[in-house]
Amino acid sequence: MMRAFNAAMIALMLAPIVLVVWMSFTPEAFFRVPLDSFSLRWYREALSYPDFVDAFVLSAKLAALAALMATALSFLAAYGLVRYRLAGRGFLLGFFTSPLVVPAVVFGIAMLQFVNRIGLYNHLVGLLFAHVVVVTPYAIRTLHATLQAVPEEMEWAAMVLGATRLRMLARVTVPLAARGIATAFLFCFLLSFSEVTMTIFMTGPALQTLPVRIYNYLTDRIDPTVAAVSSLVVLVSLCLVFLANLAGAFKRLPR
């Protein structure tokens, strides 16, 4: 009975996603679950719709940059927190992870008003910084745990053997933390790639990420093109989830 209940719950979790993917293969111009005939018609439609293609490129670029920045900055910060007895370490760690408890709506409103004020509205930089803030807590937590597991003796050994701190970081610490770094990067990429709420608030018409574009498309008209685009999003996400799982990401999920 428990097994059946679990199966039902999984069905509930996956139902909307599965249905979107299924629906995307319909040959018809309206939403009826295709049972006997399938077509890639709406994928062709989606890929010839420049707004979606642009949005996809923007989302991928944004996610990559945000993940890169968040991972790099968080690596440095986590290293500082783990290796140095800084006054207020606990406070700093709390500060770096605090965007986690700020609702995306709240941060979205704040960013909307902020980027307008400093003239970064409709500008990638504003969007990038916002995404870095949103994904940083995950990077910090992952990398903090990762670096705590790197024995300090390894670093000392490298430096006694003549490595400066920078060369030691590049040759010893980074390779030893590679798994955690990959995890943090993939996680940040995924989170940025799927971020909707904050982005929808702050983004201008010229810079619509894919989820925002899909949302706007849905409020405008509705045809299976959007299902095809969504399926591509799901595909990308699932590939990255798979990669992240290979890197051991889900063993370190923030709980």
């Binding site: 024995p151 003796e153 390894m154 050994a157 006694v160 003549g162 490595a163 701190r165 010893v172 030893l176």
Partner: peptide, 16 residues
């Protein structure tokens, strides 16, 4: 530390 030309063997060896 890196400029002293000393060598240190650790209790846990600290091999990379």
């Amino acid at each position: 530390i890196h400029a002293r030309n000393m060598a240190l063997v650790f209790q846990n060896y600290a091999l990379f």
